[in-house]
Structures are given as C-alpha cells and as structure tokens.
Design a protein around this nucleic acid. Structure first.
Length: 339
DNA sequence: TTGGAGGCGAGAAAAGAGGA
DNA sequence: TCCTCTTTTCTCGCCTCCAA
C-alpha cells in the first residue's frame, strides 16, 4: 500500500523542482481575455512550502533561501503545501531598485543578516502553481489568480502583485511611477514551467541614445576575429567635468558603458575593419572612468564614429543598463552630440 | 593589502541545430 | 522550408578566493 493508495481523489505530491514560466517581449496586447500587472524590477523567485520545509528558488532552480532570511516568515501563512511564483524586489525611494537588490544577491553568509536590515526585500507574489495537493499548472491563469488572492498573503516582506483589466492605464501608471513596465497575461493560459510563452507578454519602455565609439574589447569564440563589445562615451559638456574638460583634448569622452549585443555577423566584420583603421594608443576616456577590468586589454580608437544604442535605463553611476546596438549613424558627428 | 580571475544573479540578441 | 529551441556572446554589479 502506497501513499497514493490512501488518496482516491488524486492528491498530487508537491513537485520537488519547478522552473518559472517566462514572458515574451512585445507590445501591449489589448482586448478581452487579458489581465495586466506591473513588471517588477527584481529577481524571479519561486517559493516551495511543505509543512516545516520552506525554500526559495532562483530562476535557474538554485536554492536562495539563505540569501533572503526575511522571507522565512511567509511560511507561517502557508498552512498547506504550496508552490508560489513571484519577484523579489528591493525598494529605494518607494520604487523597486535593481541596483539596491544587487547588494543582496551576492552577499556572503556573514553579511546577509546585516544587509537584511539595511536593505530589506519584498517578495511580490503573482502566481500559485500548486496548492493543497492540487497541481495547477494546467489551470487557466484567471483561476490560479483567484486562488492566489483567496490565500490572503500579506506581511512586512511579502505581498500579492495587484492585477488590472485596463492595460493602457497600468502602462501609464508604470511610466509615471518609474516602474519597469507591464506584464500582460492571457486569462486562459496554463503555466508552462521553464518555457517562454506568448501567453505572457512583457512590455518595457526602452530608450535610444546616440553615442561615440571610444574603443573595443576583443571577443571570444565565434567573435574572436571581430570584437566582443564597444566602449561608448559622450562628448564632455561641462567644462568642469572631472579633470578632463574640453580644455583637455586628450580625453574628449565621458565613459557611459559598453555594448556587446545586437550585432549581426556582417555588422561585426564591417565595424571591426573600420575600428582597426581608427586604432590609436590614446585613450579617449579619463583614466579613472573606465573600470579596470574593462580597460584591461581594450583597444582605443579615434572618437569619430557615432552609433545608436537602445537601453533600459541609466545606472546610478551614469552607465547604460542592458544596452543593445542599433547601428552606426554616419549622418551624425561627435560634435553634433555635444550640442 | 591589493589585484586578478572566476562565479552568479538579472537582462538582450543572433546564429545554428533539430524537428515537423 | 519553416519554426522553435538551444547555445553563444555580451551587459551590469557584487562577491569570494588566491597569489603576489
């Protein structure tokens, strides 16, 4: 006689591992059958609770329970075996800050408790995948959502993500409040663990920028013969900028980061050839601007090429976050960017 | 003590492989 | 042939470990 034999109504054991369902980037879907949530700028996390066992898992299935001890209190509200899906966020100035969260993500054992007080996190729950012996992966999102709200999860370090019917209004609110974007979910969609699905659509506001190429770093593998990333800068505007204003023509650019994605093979080859023609021993950035590990092995070029990049946001120290290459702007000059 | 290397979390995009 | 999935190559920041 097995445990299953004791359970004639089909009680499903809690799966030991689940990977999160992923959203597809896109534009805001409209019409019947969609619901909308804010996109939280944090780290994805799944919670598994089963009696005395409580664990938090990362997007790749790693156990991160010890990294966020303040979430352990959630176990007291989970009285039946359950899998939850959500996002861990750290608030800064009232909005989620990925920069603040990064301090928590890799904290050593000795610093976890200290950082949990200084930079506490909140677990924003948006889905329930298994509850009280019932697997919900095949259930429609609307049904899972209804069950989630009935659980009454609320605490000092966890909450349920609000859900709305008006996508445009959610997008507008997200933009005004500085949130990352919107996630639209098809009400009838099942949960597909570990899969990217068009039943979930994430809409984020990207920004484009024209910047000057100041150098490149060699690539690896398939890109060993071209380049790995481009080092980008903007012409200095402020005469008092650092030690290197316009009066210091040796360092005409202010470093704003690197871009290493968005290139086709043709672009890699063409751009690589042009950069090699422009290579110089003179670094166009001030010495202390480019991080040591980025400057190591970098090749510098005369700052004459302008390109366009798309990126998500500026980091706290004035770098591009998640930049992607759009293309050269032969119609633009560095001098025009400074005007 | 400092510097370098590597790991890990998030993200994006392009190319190649494999199946229908 | 087309579509989907996987792999590869990057970004950022912070950490630990080890060698000089």
């Amino acid at each position: 006689m097995t445990a299953d034999d004791d359970d004639p109504v089909g009680h499903e054991p809690l799966p030991p591992v689940l990977l999160p369902m992923l959203a597809t980037p896109g534009t805001l879907p409209e019409g019947e059958g969609w619901s909308y949530e804010f996109k939280w700028d944090g780290v994805r996390a799944l919670v598994r609770a089963d009696g005395d066992e409580f664990a938090v898992f990362s997007r790749r299935g790693g156990d991160i329970t010890d990294t966020y001890p303040e979430l352990a209190g959630l176990a007291s509200q989970l009285t039946t075996p359950v899998w939850l899906d959500g996002e861990i966020v750290a608030l800064s100035g009232g909005v989620p800050s990925f920069a603040a969260l990064q301090k928590r993500m890799h904290a050593g054992r000795d610093r976890v408790a200290q950082l949990a007080v200084r930079t506490p996190v909140t677990y924003v729950v948006f889905d329930v995948l298994h509850h009280d012996g019932r697997g919900l992966l095949a259930s429609p999102y609307a049904e899972r959502r209804e069950l989630l709200e009935s659980l009454g999860l609320a605490g000092s370090h966890w909450t349920v993500s609000p859900c709305f019917d008006d996508g445009a209004a959610v997008a507008d609110t997200a933009a005004r409040q500085g949130l990352e974007g919107v996630v639209a979910k098809r009400s009838c969609s099942p949960y597909r663990p570990g899969r990217r699905s068009e039943d979930w659509v994430k809409v984020t506001e990207n920004t484009t920028l024209e910047a000057v190429i100041g150098g490149w770093r060699t690539g690896e593998g398939r890109r060993a013969d071209t380049f790995g990333s481009l080092l980008l800068g903007l012409p200095r505007e402020d005469p008092g900028d650092a030690d290197s204003g316009p009066d210091d023509p040796a360092h005409p650019l202010r470093y704003i980061g690197q871009v290493g994605t968005g290139f086709t093979d043709d672009v890699l080859e063409e751009l690589s050839a042009r950069l090699r023609e422009l290579e110089t021993a003179d670094r166009p950035f001030a010495a202390d601007e480019v991080p040591r590990e980025r400057a190591r092995g970098a090749h510098w070029v005369r700052p004459v090429l302008v390109g366009e990049v798309e990126f998500k946001a500026w980091t706290d120290d004035g770098r591009l976050r998640a930049p992607s290459w759009r293309g050269l702007r032969p119609d633009r000059t560095p001098e025009e960017l400074s005007q």
